[in-house]
Design a protein around this nucleic acid. Sequence first.
DNA 1: CTATAAATGTCGGAG
DNA 2: CTCCGACGTTTATAG
Lengths: 219, 219
Amino acid sequence: MRLVVARCSVDYVGRLTAHLPSAVRLVMVKADGSVSIHADDRAYKPLNWMSPPCRIEESPGVWRIVNKAGEELRIALEEILHDSTHDLGVDPGLVKDGVEAHLQELLAATPTVLGEGLTLIRREYPTAIGPVDLLCRDSTGATVAVEVKRRGEIDGVEQLTRYLELLGRDPLLAPVTGILAAQEIKPQARVLAADRGIRCVTVDYDALRGIERDELTLF
Amino acid sequence: MRLVVARCSVDYVGRLTAHLPSAVRLVMVKADGSVSIHADDRAYKPLNWMSPPCRIEESPGVWRIVNKAGEELRIALEEILHDSTHDLGVDPGLVKDGVEAHLQELLAATPTVLGEGLTLIRREYPTAIGPVDLLCRDSTGATVAVEVKRRGEIDGVEQLTRYLELLGRDPLLAPVTGILAAQEIKPQARVLAADRGIRCVTVDYDALRGIERDELTLF
DNA sequence: CTATAAATGTCGGAG
DNA sequence: CTCCGACGTTTATAG
């Protein structure tokens, strides 16, 4: 990884056109050839960047970074204040926990959290328009489609609505009702869900993990 | 901005739980207190980060970064290979061109691109659930709601569907038909749009800009 | 490779 | 502050 602090101006021409006037910034060149330009604010997002795979053409005062799609980043270096290179090696990578997949797993193991007497038919139930997160049966024998999200927003309601429409046409499954399950559900999503007869269930991830642990300790 | 290259391990506990095993990485601390941790690949996204506003507690071998929401990033520094600080000043910021707003502007000026005889009623037509990008009238006098996107996906169809449903209830506007206009339209969006009687129009941004230029040169 | 959904999305604007 | 939609979204994954 090469770190250059320099007064520079930058132009990007690709999916849009963008220009950065002259200022002091960090230019980061990574081992895969990718380049990003950071100002002294915002942790996450570079001002400008070029994702790998890409190629750097380095001439005295100008770096030109191009990719296969013809996008181009041009950095005019006016004054270099710092320039160092570091060998970082390959990163072992990130271990995550608590994303949607895991929440779905926990709910599949304890569907009663979503409703009294609910039993799992299967996870990732396949349909023509994509898999339904959880397909369940309630105590009356009716089918229940569950959409699992970390955060419940309008998208999730729309997605579930499409599944319900499709599943409802299947005589083996009909009638099918819907549940949107999420750690947090936005008001607008609640309103839309209510309007479509979809039940909203907020799920406490930590509590759910606790239940799992408790059930495991019973053995 | 402070740049530290160090062998470190990192834990994040917040919206999810994540762990980075020991390896050499770049730790970037920005003037606003935000922190990001970069490996030697991927230009855009850091392995881990904490967005501002946040607070850093620095003890000898451990940095603890917390925010108001109680999220925490903990960096265990095992071996520091580089440590430098740079004064970057305030960045003048980015000038962009070519995004949805501009596409909408161009289509508002030349609605006939979307359909023979189409005339603009108004841009950003306000409704209870948000503004309709373009409201037009076709040659038969019927109202046409246009949703403008850079890339047409299912979201755009759903959004337009909600507008059409609402606008269709207004006796002054009904009947209302819909057009999804985008530089590129995904197959799934096309299928859903067709199913709902929404017309899809792909727009060539550069050509449209050319038309604008040509019309200007007529004066 | 394309297409699709998730993301610690982030960011900006309107209310 | 919350809500909402755009983003050069980026990123991962399935087909």
